[in-house]
């Protein structure tokens, strides 16, 4: 076994060390490209008091939404949280704290978190509730607010293929937040549809190098669709 081999033997092993009150960053957009089996493992473990950072919080039945059933999430950082009745109920009752963050700012907070940038200025949210209480600077006549990077104790992500060293290839729009989520986790856990031998991936085609990945596991995926829209033949 090489020291670069990131493959773990089970989902239990993949999430070992996740404890109550930790911060978990998750990839995915809606139900597309979500680490569905890693989320199920968090449910199984019963970890509580989690801060979860993800663009959305799944639906009532799928994705991060299943962590609401036993109230495992204390705080959610997301850009859009509709389409989830349980989420709404817990938000309204105050059991679930919600920090709404603009989608591009959320992506950049994760990117910065993984790239050693503690904070950055963006025009997004200036003059809105998002900008309240944040430092404002003017550059070239425009106002920008200071946004801080996010890092997670764990990050959980889904890729299409990986080699055993954790070099990742994503597929279509299932890429979304996954690359940045991986980089922003102290322990980055990635599940994929296929693990190939080292050397089987063309280095030019790797979307994210394995240096960011701590644990890798191959799974099978349900891939639920939120809005199935088709045109007639």
């Amino acid at each position: 076994m090489s020291g670069f081999d990131k493959v773990v033997g089970s989902y239990e092993e993949a999430m070992a060390g996740l404890e109550d009150n930790m911060t978990v960053i998750a990839g995915g957009f809606g139900l597309c490209g979500i680490p569905e089996n890693l989320i199920k493992e968090i449910r199984r473990r019963g970890t509580r008091g989690l801060t979860v950072v993800s663009n959305n919080c799944g639906t009532d039945k799928y994705g991060l939404g299943i962590l609401l059933v036993d109230k495992q999430i204390r705080k959610m950082v997301a850009s859009y949280v509709g389409e989830n009745a349980l989420f709404e109920a817990q938000m309204m009752s105050g059991e679930l704290e919600v920090e709404l963050t603009p989608q591009g700012t959320l992506a950049e907070k994760m990117r910065a978190g993984g790239a050693g940038i503690p904070a950055f200025f963006t025009a997004t949210g200036y003059g809105t509730p998002v900008g309240e209480g944040k430092e404002v600077r003017e550059f070239n006549g425009r106002h920008y607010i200071l946004e801080e990077a996010i890092q997670g104790d764990f990050s959980i992500a889904k890729a299409w293929k990986a080699d055993r060293y954790g070099n990742l290839v994503f597929r279509k729009t299932a890429r979304n937040f996954n690359p940045m989520a991986v980089t922003a986790g102290k322990i980055a856990v990635v599940e994929v549809e296929e693990i190939v031998e080292v050397g089987a991936l063309d280095p030019d085609e790797i979307h994210l190098p394995g240096i960011y990945v701590q644990r890798l596991i191959q799974g099978t995926f349900e891939k639920h669709i939120e809005q199935r829209t088709v045109r007639s033949a």
Partner: peptide, 20 residues
Amino acid sequence: PFPREDEVDPDLINAGKQTV
């Protein structure tokens, strides 16, 4: 455009979470 029935791919959606 939206996919035909046999082109639907859960890994390919738009920002409204619709298959495209």
